[in-house]
Computed example of a mutant assay.
Amino acid sequence: MSSKAHLLEPVEKPIASALKTLAFQQKGLSALADAIGNGLGESFLAAIEKINGIKGRVIVTGVGKSGHIGSKMAATLASTGTPAFFVHPAEANHGDLGMIARDDAIIAMSWSGETQELSGILRYSRRFEIPLIAMTSGENSTLAREADIVLILPKSDEACPHGLAPTTSTLMQLALGDAISVALLESRGFSATDFHTFHPGGKLGANLTHVGEIMHVGSKVPLVPLGTPMAQAVHVLAEKRVGCVGITDGSGNLVGIFTDGDLARNIERDLTGHTVDDIMTPSPKTVTEQTLAATAMELLNRHNISALIVVEGAKPVGVVHFHDLLRIGVA
């Protein structure tokens, strides 16, 4: 073996391992998609209908890796409009069963369906007639027999070379959990505005902020009417310091815009005797108060401009600057 080949081997082996792992997981996801089109889909629809019909919350439970996936599923449900939380089976057996009410529904996750720690929650759900949805590959397992609705996951080889570490199986659980969350989101008409209610912080919350929440209004909006002498328009441009001046007609409608870029491009011209009508750009780019901050930023970047006039119909009601968007975390 050449020295070059010897050096490459340690690098090539992990890459080959990564590709093999992804191939196993792609196979698992394909099997899951096939299952939804061949039997699993009926149970999936029944689960969505059952969850949409409850008055309480969705309780997700599971042990080990299934528990970690269940915790993520509960968080996704809760953040997309379906009240949910995760209850660990071991804690449930020591008092947390009291967190589960009769108006709730339970999603119990266990790959084998024979997880001993789930027995307390199973008995509790049957005793108080709480709807139980099972997510398992054990078609004839204890969990499947006890459940009202059974989501049978197809069996597919784990990526682990020993076939032991949950890898492909947990990915399928994760994917099916996301599918349930998104189907519920869509069935309830959950909007971007609703999403912002549950995600007020961070970049996601910033992107979902509406322009109306951060725009400048009133006397801070730079506006002049048609026919305004250029000297006066330049004075307003410098005074308001947002990089533009909106031009309005006799009805107060926005008909044009004059920017610091326009001023720079005409700096060598003698503008004496000119009005904004001669320099302005007609039909400027605008947004409404309901425009998302992320959309406003995309417009600024695409057209290489620094500010947008906010309108209601054709009337200017505010202005939003690039710096306003950066300040709240949109980038």
Rank of each mutant, 00 (worst) to 15 (best):
T80W: 14
A144M: 04
I106W: 05
S156F: 04
S283V: 05
R302Y: 15
P282H: 09
A18P: 00
M297S: 12
S141F: 05
L308G: 08
W111G: 01
G212D: 03
F85P: 03
V150E: 00
H274D: 05
L122K: 01
V58S: 10
S187E: 13
S66R: 04
G318S: 06
S156G: 01
T286V: 15
A231P: 00
F24D: 05
G201Q: 07
L151G: 13
V236I: 12
A307D: 00
I100C: 08
N301L: 14
L271W: 07
D103H: 12
T167L: 03
S43N: 14
V11Q: 06
A16I: 07
G62N: 04
R102A: 14
L254H: 05
L118R: 06
H235T: 11
L143N: 10
S125N: 07
M109P: 00
G313C: 06
T272E: 10
E91W: 03
M1W: 03
E91F: 05
G256M: 02
A134I: 06
G62L: 09
G246P: 00
E186A: 07
S251A: 11
I309T: 15
Q290G: 08
Q173H: 08
G202D: 03
T275Y: 11
M172N: 13
V320N: 05
Q232E: 11
M280A: 08
H210N: 07
A35N: 04
M172A: 13
V320D: 02
A307S: 15
R127M: 12
V287Q: 03
K4E: 15
D34Y: 10
A296Y: 13
H88F: 07
K55A: 14
T228V: 11
G120D: 15
V217L: 12
G205M: 04
L143D: 06
A101W: 06
Q116R: 13
L151Q: 12
K55Y: 15
D104T: 12
T275G: 08
A183S: 15
F322A: 06
I309F: 14
A108P: 01
E239Y: 13
V317P: 02
I100Y: 10
L325I: 07
I100F: 13
L153Y: 04
N304S: 11
S219E: 15
A147P: 10
E298G: 08
H68R: 00
E186M: 09
L176E: 06
L164C: 06
T248K: 02
S283Q: 09
G218Y: 13
L271A: 04
A159M: 03
E158L: 09
T82R: 05
G189D: 05
A134H: 06
L223G: 07
A46M: 15
A108M: 03
G313E: 00
W111H: 12
D262V: 09
S66V: 09
A183V: 11
A33H: 09
I279Q: 02
D34Q: 13
L118G: 11
G201W: 01
A75W: 02
